[in-house]
Write a protein that binds this DNA or RNA. Structure first.
Lengths: 138, 138
DNA sequence: GCTAAAACATAGTTTTTTACTATGTTTTGT
DNA sequence: ACAAAACATAGTAAAAAACTATGTTTTAGC
């Protein structure tokens, strides 16, 4: 039960954006270098985030990325859904519904676990993570 | 973020044992057949559970398995630790401590998520799962 | 004692997923 | 024009997961 580098790298990218001064652009290559992530791989990851609509991209020389929304309006649940694909601990909760579902002894347990994880992710925003970080600094 | 078939099959095996009348043995081959799991694979999984000490095995013809403890004394956290290997959503919480750990922005977030998942698993026992099942029957 | 049936054990193989690379195209400031 | 950035897809390598194969050991029943 591990989260992929996709999710971890993507989160780090977003945190870097959130830490950026309002309106300032940050280049993907810069983040890739600082965070020691392959630029090509990071591009793929960032692309997965685009449909979420939280990124503002400026193309061409001198371009870069910025957040399109305030960090406290961006929930971890949304981020995880786009990076990880899905969150559920077992596939049958969201897809591949198995035919034994209604007589499945463990299904209810998985559903509860799923709801626990999701509700935590729902309760957290990008801003919370940054805030926790700032607290540590003094 | 999916749990492996190891964990899911192993859990189903334990539930079958828990549903068994007190002291009665259940054969692995029987469970494998009923649950449509490869017997050889299920054997591997069951072996991973042995160090937990919740299994009583009787070898030889007419042998089988039974629970060595009451279902309400067997926590989901223990089961998951043995089947999944570890629970933490990222490796650096339990091993592979990275050298940037103390300046890691996301580490605290991962730790909180980890604790949420673990505390849920700690709160649940095999007995709870069986009980939830019994409720559904009438 | 022999045999069949069960648990016990390890190594190997296949399949799937993850992580990453290669090779471009498009856009835009200078 | 050109360099630097985002955008996009396909391919590849490595790792993990899922399973198979091939045994050994134990024990009840004949």
């Amino acid at each position: 039960m591990k989260f992929s580098t996709r999710t971890r790298y993507g989160l780090r990218f977003l945190i870097r954006l959130a830490a950026q001064p309002e309106g300032e652009l940050l280049q993907l290559g810069q983040v890739a270098h600082d965070e020691n992530i392959s630029p090509g791989y990071l591009e793929q990851i960032v692309r997965a985030l685009k449909p979420l609509g939280i990124l503002r991209a400026v193309r061409g020389a001198g371009g870069g990325y910025a957040l399109a929304r305030r960090p406290d309006e961006i929930s971890m649940e949304d981020i995880f859904l786009h990076l990880e694909g899905e969150i559920s601990p077992v596939a049958c909760l969201t897809r591949d519904q198995c035919r034994r579902a209604d007589q499945c002894v463990t299904r209810n347990f998985w559903r509860q676990l799923d709801e626990h994880i999701r509700s935590f992710l729902r309760s957290q925003t990008l801003a919370d993570i940054i805030a926790a970080e700032k607290l540590c600094l003094h």
